[in-house]
Amino acid sequence: MWRALGAALAALSLAACATPQEHGPTPPGFPQPPGAPILRPPPSEPPRRLDVSALPGWALEDHDAAFAAWRATCHAAREPSMAGACKRARAAGVVRPGDGRAFLERTFVAERVGGSGVLTAYFAPVYPARRRPGGEFSAPVRPRPADLAVAAGGEVLRVRPDGTARPYPDRAAIEAAPEAQPLAWMRPEELFFLQVQGSGVLVFEDGRRLKALYAAHNGRTFVGIANPMRDRGLLARDNTSGDAIRGWLAAHRGPEAEAIMRLNPRYAFFRLAPDDGKPPAGAAGLPLPAGRAVAVDPAFHPYGELLWIDGKAPLLAGAFPTYRRLVTALDTGGAIKGPVRADLYLGEGEAAGAEAGRVRHALAMWRLVPR
Rank of each mutant, 00 (worst) to 15 (best):
A317H: 11
G200T: 00
E45N: 09
R230Y: 08
E105S: 14
D238C: 08
I260F: 07
P302Q: 09
R266M: 14
P321F: 05
A151F: 08
G57K: 05
K87W: 15
S199P: 06
P161K: 00
E190T: 12
V359N: 03
L5D: 12
V327K: 01
T73A: 14
P20F: 15
T26I: 13
H252G: 04
G207Q: 10
G291W: 04
L9P: 10
A15Q: 12
S116D: 14
A281M: 14
V150F: 00
L213R: 11
G93T: 09
R187Q: 12
W2T: 11
G304I: 00
W248C: 02
A8R: 11
A268Y: 07
H252W: 10
L330H: 06
G338H: 03
L202M: 07
D206Q: 11
A177H: 09
L234A: 05
E355K: 09
R160L: 13
A290T: 04
L263Y: 10
V340H: 04
L14T: 12
R130I: 06
F137W: 07
Y267G: 03
I225W: 03
T73C: 14
A290R: 06
E256C: 07
P34T: 03
L39V: 10
G338K: 05
G353T: 02
H63G: 05
G247C: 08
P27F: 09
A165C: 05
P37L: 07
G135N: 11
V223A: 13
R101C: 10
G219W: 00
A259K: 07
P33K: 09
F103I: 06
A180Q: 12
G247V: 08
L148D: 01
A352W: 06
V359C: 11
L60S: 15
A295E: 02
F103D: 01
G282D: 07
N218K: 04
I38H: 10
A16E: 15
G357I: 01
P31C: 00
V118S: 08
P47L: 05
R160E: 09
F193W: 09
A16K: 13
C74S: 03
V95Y: 11
G198Q: 03
P188D: 02
V327N: 00
P178Q: 12
A259S: 08
L286A: 08
R237E: 15
L316V: 04
A10P: 13
R144S: 06
Y303R: 03
M365L: 15
A244V: 02
G115I: 05
I336M: 02
L306R: 01
A146R: 14
S199L: 06
R106K: 13
P188R: 01
L249H: 01
A216E: 10
V369A: 13
P287R: 04
K337E: 10
P188L: 02
E348A: 11
R325Q: 10
D275C: 01
P161F: 05
T120K: 04
P182D: 07
G135V: 08
